[in-house]
């Protein structure tokens, strides 16, 4: 009977599995994706020339903290959805809270600013490219996150794709913040956030097709 042969073959092929191998795969995959996206940013867009001066200012750290927080939530979501019956509800709630809190903060700053600054706070100098650049920078990360999940066992493929996309978009926007010179919180709250959500949407749609196992 073929099943018996298969069982014998699988038993011969057995190797011990270390306990942390899922976390390791997530870390390796997203790490490689990060390296690829970082190189793409440096080669294609270049680091912001005023990085030294900027790193002494609040907006730089605010932007970094916001995108890093989303990146951690996203990477954790990838790990959680990688198990059969895994779910990302907690991660989506945390993300909603983060978006909401940052949105309130940005709205407050916007409201307190003099009206003649309002337009500039929303459009900056790079409105036409910001979200687009983040989405492009997150593509190597999205591929890496899909590779991570294909080796594991997500049973909800749309959620799995969304988790991969959110992680990719958030890590991509961390990387982009080393190029981008925008400092207005309202700008970040809109266009960076979109740069996280759009890859999330792409991932959710692609998940059903590319994450099957």
């Amino acid at each position: 009977m073929a099943t018996d042969d298969l069982i014998a073959r699988l038993a011969r092929d057995l190797k011990p599995v270390p306990r942390s191998s899922v976390a390791k795969r997530v870390a390796i995959g997203l790490g490689l994706g990060f390296a690829a996206s970082w190189l793409l940013m440096v080669w294609w867009l270049g680091m912001r020339p005023d990085l030294m001066e900027a790193s002494a200012t609040m907006p730089f750290w605010g932007k970094l903290a916001y995108t890093l927080l989303l990146a951690v939530i996203g990477a954790w979501a990838v790990k959680r959805i990688a198990y059969p019956l895994g779910s990302i509800v907690i991660n989506l709630i945390l993300m909603a809270v983060a978006l909401f809190a940052f949105g309130i903060l940005a709205a407050g700053i916007f409201a307190m600013a003099p009206p003649q600054d309002h337009y500039g706070m929303l459009t900056g100098k790079s409105i036409a490219v910001c979200t687009f650049n983040i989405v492009l920078l997150s593509m190597p990360l999205l591929i890496a996150a899909f590779w991570v999940l294909r080796g594991l066992a997500p049973t909800r493929l749309t959620s799995a794709g969304a988790a991969a996309g959110i992680a990719a978009g958030a890590i991509g926007s961390v990387i982009y913040s080393f190029h981008c010179t925008e400092s207005a919180m309202p700008f970040v709250a809109i266009w960076y956030t979109l740069g996280v959500l759009i890859p999330g949407l792409i991932g959710a749609v692609a998940g059903r097709f590319f994450l099957r196992w």
Binding site: L6, L10, V22, Y83, P84, A153, T155
Partner: peptide
């Protein structure tokens, strides 16, 4: 069986085995 083999790293040892197996079979 092949999925169980390839995905065995996703079994968390503090969870019931049958629940994990069932999730894979159902998928």
């Amino acid at each position: 069986l092949m999925a169980l083999h390839a995905k065995r790293a996703t079994y968390e040892i503090d969870r019931p085995f049958t629940a994990w197996l069932h999730a894979i079979a159902r998928y």
